[in-house]
Simulated assay, not measured.
Amino acid sequence: MKTEQITQNQLILFLIVYFYSTLVGFASAHLIHLSQYDTVIVLMIGGLGGCIYAFFTIKLAKRRPTEFISHYGKEIFPYWIHVIFMGFYCFSFLQISAFILREYEDFFVQTYLPETPNWAIGTILGFVVAVTVRSGVVTLFRTAQGLFFLVILADIVITAFIGKELKWDRWMAFVTNHSWHNIYKGSFYTIPFFGEVVILVFLFPYLAHKNKTLKSVIWAVSLSMFFIIITMVFLLLLFGPNLASHTTYPMLEMVRYIRIADFIENLDPFLISIWSTTIYLKISIMFYLSVQILAHLFHLKDHRPLVFSLAAVMVALSLQMSGGTTSLTSFFTESWATYSYFIQSIPILYLLMDTLKRFIKKRSSKKAETN
Rank of each mutant, 00 (worst) to 15 (best):
L23Q: 14
Y257R: 09
F68G: 07
G323V: 12
T326N: 10
T325G: 14
I45T: 07
L203P: 02
F308V: 04
S290V: 07
S322I: 04
K210H: 10
P250Q: 07
I343E: 14
V42Y: 05
D106Y: 14
T247K: 03
A154D: 02
E115P: 00
V255T: 02
A130L: 05
G163L: 04
R358F: 06
A295L: 04
L34I: 11
Y341T: 13
W219L: 08
S135M: 09
E67F: 13
P205V: 09
G163N: 03
I343C: 13
K167G: 00
F56R: 02
T329D: 14
T111C: 03
L267K: 08
R259F: 03
E369R: 15
S92D: 09
I258E: 02
V131S: 00
Q320N: 12
R259K: 01
I100G: 07
I16V: 11
I279A: 00
V128Y: 13
S322R: 11
S92V: 12
A54L: 01
S365P: 00
F14N: 05
K164C: 00
M321C: 08
L13V: 14
R63C: 02
I285A: 04
P114L: 04
D302Q: 09
I100K: 00
V151I: 09
F77A: 11
A316V: 10
F331G: 14
S21Y: 03
Q8T: 11
F239R: 05
L349Q: 08
A312R: 03
S364M: 09
H246A: 09
D354E: 13
I162Y: 02
M232G: 04
T333K: 15
I343M: 14
F56Q: 08
T39A: 15
I158H: 05
N266G: 02
G146T: 00
G146Y: 10
V201E: 05
A61P: 00
L153S: 00
Q292C: 08
V137R: 11
Q110E: 15
P305S: 13
I260T: 00
V198I: 11
G73A: 04
L294I: 04
I229V: 15
F99G: 07
P269K: 01
V291R: 05
L319G: 10
F14A: 06
F99M: 12
F239K: 09
L200Q: 01
A261R: 11
S335Q: 15
L23K: 07
K62W: 07
L11C: 06
F148S: 06
L351W: 08
G136P: 07
L271C: 06
A120E: 13
M1H: 12
L125K: 08
L289V: 04
S322K: 11
V217K: 09
E67P: 03
R134V: 04
E369G: 05
I183S: 03
V221N: 05
I156E: 00
D302L: 10
K362S: 11
Y206F: 14
T213E: 04
T329W: 13
F308I: 00
G195E: 01
L352G: 10
V137E: 03
T355R: 09
